[in-house]
Simulated scan of single mutants.
Amino acid sequence: MTDQKKRTILKTVALSALTSAVLIGCGKKEEPAPAPAPAPVAEAPKPEPLKIAFAYVGPVGDGGWTFAHDNGRKAMEAEFGDKVKTSFVESVPESADAERVIRDMAQQGNTLIFGTTFGYMEPMLKVAADFKNVKFEHATGYKTADNMRTYDSRTYEGAYMAGVIAGSMTKTNTLGVVGSIPIPEVIRNINSFTLGAQSVNPKIKTKVVWVNSWFDPPKETEAATSLINGGVDVLFQNTDSSAVLQTAEKMGKRAFGWDSDMTAYGPKAHLGSAVINWGPYYKKAVGDALNGTWSTGSVWWGVKEGAIDMVSVAEDVPAEVKAKVDAVKAGLKDGSFHPWTGPIVGQDGKEVLAKDAKADDAFLGGIKFYVKGVEGKVPQ
């Protein structure tokens, strides 16, 4: 290497060292490379809503049994929002059609199914046996399975309160009931209405006409007309339409709404409405399914749980009568009053409940007799 080249290399090295020294002296340093941005965290997929289906025995309409169930469905839907997705089929007969509809609901991916009338019990049991991953809820029945629960409302409490009003307002001491299907639930309501009336008026007699249907406005109208022509001046019903109240309105008599507030159908005839609020139970049942605590069994709710009430009592009902109804309601709520407290005598004069004895749910669930004061025979 020539001396000239050596001097050039030494100068370059020296210049580089000097430059580095100057930079360090000025406080400048080489910046580290920026760290790579973290990968975005994927959001967990939103859980699919619980699919729930309801089978209704009548049309939803704007009054009665099915209307009350649908109001309960809407209240539950409002409670849980997008956690649930509901659907319903209305006017499903208590026949082979019920099994077809309920089976179709299960096949469509509904994992909670409500059947809202007594006649769906056997069809639901059949479908439940084939769809073990689906939870079934049956209204007013008594048979259960591992994946089928029963639920009911103590409608007899509303019937008793209606009776207290009817017994106070009748002028003929003759009351009438339009009955649907002669099962213990309905017979119990007829008797409870009579017992409530007799608690304020021992002279009360009750006549019954059966229509053998839950919803048949023409038959209900015919039955109500027959009762009025037979001397009845206050009507009660265990049917689903407003026909009985409307008939009383047209014929100048008094009557009650049933299952929902029916004031608008007969404002002059209307004495009050014995209503069911299904909302509390539907919220409980769906909550159980969502949080994994659902189990089989039987649930029976009344005034105490907010499921039964007497509403829109007519203005001309005396204050003392309204006070009696309020006292009954308060007693039902705190458990200090039971409508079926002995002595209670059957139609044949034999004691069915001893003095001070209170009917338990087993007794109430098996009533197939009329109490004293109810005329006619229980259909077989």
Rank of each mutant, 00 (worst) to 15 (best):
V127K: 03
N133V: 03
A145F: 05
D152E: 08
T155P: 03
L175D: 05
D146E: 14
K171M: 14
L125S: 05
S153H: 11
N133T: 15
E157R: 08
M148W: 07
Y160S: 09
D152M: 13
T140N: 06
T150C: 09
N133C: 09
V164E: 06
N147E: 15
M148Q: 07
G158I: 06
D152L: 13
A159C: 12
A129V: 02
T155M: 13
I165P: 03
M148G: 02
T174M: 13
A162D: 07
Y156I: 12
K143P: 06
D146M: 03
F136C: 02
N147I: 14
A166I: 10
A139Q: 05
A139R: 02
K132N: 07
V134P: 00
T174E: 11
V164F: 10
R149W: 01
A162C: 15
T144S: 08
K135V: 00
T140G: 05
D146I: 05
F136P: 00
S153P: 03
Y142V: 13
A139K: 04
N133I: 00
I165C: 08
T144W: 08
T140R: 04
D130S: 10
A139F: 08
S153V: 15
K135I: 01
F131H: 02
K126W: 01
F131V: 04
V134I: 08
G176H: 10
H138P: 04
N173W: 08
T155R: 01
I165Y: 06
D146P: 04
M148K: 03
V134L: 01
T170P: 05
M161C: 12
M161Y: 10
D130H: 02
T150S: 04
V127C: 06
Y156P: 06
A162H: 09
V134A: 00
M148V: 12
S168I: 08
G163F: 09
N173Q: 12
V134K: 00
K143L: 15
A128Y: 00
A145I: 11
M161V: 15
F131T: 03
M148D: 01
I165D: 04
I165S: 06
V134Q: 00
D130A: 12
D146S: 13
V177P: 03
V164R: 00
M161W: 10
A166V: 09
S168C: 07
H138M: 14
A139H: 06
Y156G: 10
K132L: 11
D130Q: 11
G141Y: 00
V177E: 06
T170L: 07
N147C: 11
Y151R: 02
G167R: 02
K135Q: 02
G176Y: 06
